[in-house]
Design a protein around this nucleic acid. Structure first.
Lengths: 202, 202, 202, 202
DNA sequence: CATGAATGAGGGTTCATTCAT
DNA sequence: AATGAATGAACCCTCATTCAT
């Protein structure tokens, strides 16, 4: 997924700088109006450079979405993978993972919403990769749970719980019109953890 | 929300007929390509009439989305409201409600996905109404749970469970690329119900 | 010009009735929004019958304009021609003609405005005929003046005065946003007549 | 009225250039076929650029009309206002003003015809402004006449004469199918001046 | 590297006109 | 005679993308 967005610019530092600007602007604009309603001109303008310059750093409008997805990957998937891959799996560790995940979701709310809404706007291959990433996450989380499976839950049930946890993280983003009124992030996280513990542990 | 889509056609039966055709086509096309990628011409063509005729039955492209939402309302919200409003609330009844809800979600998968993806494409007022509907559903479900609250769960926790249940229904739709491979609807429903019972009942 | 608007209806009385309805509606609508902004549907609707029925009494939208022009002809040109053709020409008679003309213009204000604004929307041949009518009027008025030419004005000057008079009549219509505030029709007519007399008579 | 037509182009010189091209083309096309019959594509094509480029220099089709009106203002109203505002008012000066006015009208014939025919196609506010401009002109001309009022004509009569003069200027444009055959501009002007002098002076 | 003017395919929408009932 | 549903050509306008400067 990394490096999918080619540019004609050689100065890599500049590329990174500009890409970050584009991502910031794009997230805020896509969030407000959606991908299709946002014009490339708007993106360029808000990012502080000309439309011509924008196209020095992307090839097609879709690339802007890819940049946003790249950014989610870096902010969410990579840290989570890193966290889940190392160390021994204990109840405590599982709780930490869930905690971290919810915290990360809180940080990338806008991106998650965009992910949910604009997945269709992306090329088939890209979409497949994004879903693969998500599948990987489910599997990893599932594995962690399976290793601390006190109650001898079936694999089926554990997989479902893993899915539920991930969706609960997303839900904090896409249902914020409802949830953020009633709960702080910590409240939300703690309640969900309590509820999960009743399913997971005796 | 009902009747928001005006027409220049006088024959009401015909209007209903055509609207249904439009909804069917729209769901399948929006599902495949999204609202913005789908042209009005395509909708007309697939529905079997000309672009001119399409515009005899809608006023603007957005109206097609409204038709789809109307349809969800009729298929989901109305039945659920009816179900939840009458009768006494027992554990058994709660289970029935959840069952029914999951079953309904299974029937309107495409619509739910569209709802998630195209909410942004709708006018502010419309969007508010749709979210209001959803808020109402949360509240209703919450109330039912509160009436069979064996474990003396706090209101906060119950509200969260209600949200979780509703999102689990949606999840069956928007995560089908993952879930439908592993579970049949009945399996999914039963597992979720089992998991919920551990949270709700002793 | 007469009878240019063919219909598929045999009942001539009905045709006349419907045509009059169409003319009334058209004048009011064209006046308000112009020919092109007015749709045939609107005309039919305001006239109290269906679009299908409208097209039983006209062949094309342009026909509606022709009907309006026919109506002007009947209300203005015919009476004026009749008046100017008969009798002997005296100062008194000239004054009467001018008086009558201004009075007629007052009665067909809307039609005149439409004439000025929509002449371009009419077929070349039709436009030619309308201008011919107007040329005829100039010539007739010119002739009358020439017969009471006390001051031995040149033909050139008399022709110009004739044109001026006719335009002054139109002006009462198309400059009413200015003139009708300041003058009643009688005041306007009398002042113009006074001014003309200084040009025509010693 | 000035500067009402916004642009997304930054190079002001280019904007002026293109606007002039648009005005030229528009006058000729509107003249031939009217505003509504003329398509934006035709305008672009005749102006020598693409439809996309046209829309870089206007926002809506109506803007093309505004450009034409702006142009009339610059060519007619501004010079006339300048002329009338300065200097002492004498018979001679009045004659000069009338002369200039008729000369200007001769130069903007097409524009005047468009003004007469497409006033309805313009937004209410714009129309009001255009009529205000015309009212201002009447008042100015009226004032000049009042200052050289040898014959002690009433204000009412003078106002009417002012209106007549202005309309006579327009008439040279919109009745050219008749007048230009019979008179050169100088003849027309001189005759009208002679006629006016009989009304104004002893 | 940066700019922004130019392009034109393509989309939403309208509306005069027809024709089966 | 009357109706009104159906049609589709045609119009306005947008916007991603290019390229000369």
């Amino acid at each position: 997924m990394k490096g999918k967005v080619n540019t004609s610019i050689k100065d890599l530092k500049l590329v990174k700088e500009r890409h970050e600007a584009i991502i910031d602007v794009a997230i805020s604009l896509f969030q407000k109006k959606g991908f299709h309603q946002t014009t490339t001109r708007e993106i360029a303008q808000h990012a502080g450079f000309s439309i011509g310059t924008l196209y020095e750093y992307i090839r097609k409008k879709e690339d802007v979405l890819l940049l946003v997805y790249d950014s989610i990957e870096q902010k969410v998937y990579s840290p989570l993978q890193a966290l889940m891959k190392k160390g021994i799996y204990t109840k405590r560790k599982l709780i930490t993972i869930i905690d971290t995940y919810f915290q990360l979701m809180d940080q990338v709310q806008e991106e998650v919403i965009i992910l949910y809404q604009e997945l269709k706007s992306v090329s088939d291959e890209m979409r497949y990769q994004i879903l693969q990433k998500e599948r990987g996450l489910v599997k990893m989380l599932s594995n962690v749970i399976k290793q601390v499976n006190e109650k001898q839950l079936t694999d089926e049930k554990i997989d479902l719980i893993a899915n539920n946890i991930l969706v609960q993280g997303h839900m904090w983003c896409f249902r914020r019109w409802n949830l953020h009124k009633q709960y702080t992030r910590t409240q939300f996280t703690n309640l969900q953890k309590e509820l999960l513990q009743e399913q997971l542990f005796t």
